[in-house]
Nucleic acid binder design. Structure first.
Lengths: 335, 335
DNA sequence: TTGTACGCGTTATCAG
DNA sequence: CTGATAACGCGTACAA
């Protein structure tokens, strides 16, 4: 095959009878170019089908217009929503998102950070689920602003947008106890060290006893995991009168299993979720949960992102933000 | 603030006492470098915290290591899964995904394609939901391989991986009729021109009469949209004995609404979904649907992606593929 | 196995 | 408002 040379600014400049620099200026906003010249250039651009090469532009200007965004999974509608809101904000600002899926693995996260660093993103957005030492070191050394979301870590890298998963779960537990729950079981995930789910589990460990825990599901935990765990709990610990889940999906699975087992919810057993996923609203009965708002997290993250990048481009550092989006308990029909 | 110069290959080369080119080689795989030299370089790299600049590398080598991936939404677990599988495949190959969310808008898609083109991706992956003329023209002119997924368009740009949404829905309708459904209603979305959902709707229009359609939900259609539409249908057309939905989420919403309304499913009314989302398996009763497999679509797309890029890097063109992943009908408990 | 010269396509800078 | 020239940091192509 014949590799046809791509059209460059030089070609456009030649065609329009101006210098490359003039073309470069005409293609950016807020630059002073004579209207006539700009028109000529626009014409040549269309005629030749010219498309800017941002690799070259970025190399020269030292602005990549990239934002690195790392989430553990997309098969979690809340994270998917955060990604959508952030991506949208980036698009408005002419930024391009570099998406990375860590699959709930710190090693994978580190690998991704390393790879993304080579694209010189102007900001990093991480989901809190534990970071390796190397990741933190790498990020700090890079001088690139970092925003962590979905939790409020004790020692954030820079900015954080989230809430205390530990505290929120603690509140929900208190409400269940107040409602008369005596034997409370917990359905969680297998990754509970330094993770958000782990913080909820920790609240259970601290506030409930004795402990009845089923946490052998690989995240993201599914409906089916919840159903299976529920059956196990009710079979082995029939005295259980309240099953608290790490999130809404397993709570829904548990609820469906309860229906299949002929167990009355909430009369015989209460079930709680976490997150206010759509499923918790839509199911019959609707599920008692914690009203986390992914849109808010995305929006706040987007705002910090914008400011941090703006500052960085001026050679400044945007002061570390800590946005607390403490969620409320949402009492519905399963508890 | 003081803008500290970033460390480049030159710095590493200087520190290691070799030329830049040797460093460049040492950092790539499968290049012959004396073990001793490589070690010296690795040491300097770590010592200086050097991170490659892929902008410069890409500019020079004309390989961006980027793949553009456009999906309408992430709040659809099937699309989220496709993204995951494809992203994973890319990571294995050292490719970075540029994610774009079109929000079911052809204009948005065109805007994104234009923006991404400036990053010189080595391949484009699009979800079929209609493309503007300009988008197609842009893509064809770019010479970049394009893979369309989730449908088998009559006139694909290059490669396609998917199935006929029209045919699959047609089959499901035939099965419902055979089971005795007389008055079949349809719950769909508002975007039905050239879209995948539109193809399913078209099957309904062609195979059922009279038509009872509620399709005022903006995609992605939700559980609640399904519930609302179901109530409307059963109220206005009580003779309806089968409600077919554009996808599983509204089918689940309809099912929940039926339970709230005290309508027996499937005895009084049958309900069908489309896609075999997890919710259709987990709900009680489980939902009859069409067994689309997002993993397969992601995997096949990944394979073509790899081959197409490999060919393109050699200046060749990988012959247009058409992978048909026709799904099966999954009879479950709602129909 | 290693080095040299040059070019990739754009923007910064300074001059006009 | 426009242009000339020098980077930007790396890989290609060749030579040694």
């Amino acid at each position: 095959m014949f590799k046809n040379k791509s059209v460059t600014m030089k070609d456009v400049a030649h065609d329009a009878g101006v210098s490359v620099m003039t073309v470069s200026r005409a293609l950016q906003k807020d630059t002073s170019i004579r209207e006539e010249t700009r028109l000529k250039i626009d014409l040549s651009v269309k005629k030749l089908g010219y498309v800017m090469n941002k690799m070259a532009g970025g190399l020269s200007s030292k602005r990549s217009d990239f934002v690195a965004l790392l989430v553990p999974s997309l098969n979690n509608s809340h994270l998917a929503t955060s990604v959508r809101v952030i991506t949208d904000k980036c698009r408005e600002q002419g930024l391009q998102v570099l998406l990375g899926l860590t699959d709930y693995s710190m090693e994978r996260e580190e690998e991704l950070v390393r790879a993304m660093l080579s694209r010189r993103p102007e900001a990093f957005i991480l989901t809190v689920d534990g970071h390796s030492e190397a990741t933190i070191k790498l990020l700090k050394a890079s001088q690139i602003p970092v925003i962590e979301m979905w939790e409020l870590p004790a020692n954030p890298i820079h900015h954080v947008v989230g809430f205390s998963n530990y505290a929120a779960m603690g509140e929900l537990i208190a409400v269940m106890k107040q409602k008369g729950a005596k034997n409370i079981a917990y359905i969680g995930e297998s990754h509970y060290v330094n993770t958000r789910g782990g913080e909820r589990r920790r609240a259970y460990l601290d506030h409930v006893s004795p402990h009845i825990i089923v946490d052998n599901s690989t995240p993201p935990i599914t409906f089916e995991d919840g159903a299976r765990a529920f059956r196990e709990i009710m079979t082995r610990y029939p005295e259980t009168d309240c099953v608290m889940c790490v999130s809404d999906p397993p709570a829904f699975g548990a609820l469906m299993e309860a229906q299949r087992m002929g167990i009355n919810v909430p009369e015989r057993v209460r079930i709680t979720g976490f997150g206010d996923f759509e499923i918790s609203r839509a199911s019959t009965p609707s599920i008692t949960t914690v009203a986390v708002n992914p849109q808010d997290i995305g929006r706040e993250t987007g705002i910090i992102l914008t400011e941090a990048i703006k500052a960085a481009r001026l050679g400044l550092t945007y002061p570390a933000q800590r946005i607390d989006l403490t969620p409320e308990i949402l009492l519905r029909n399963t508890a």
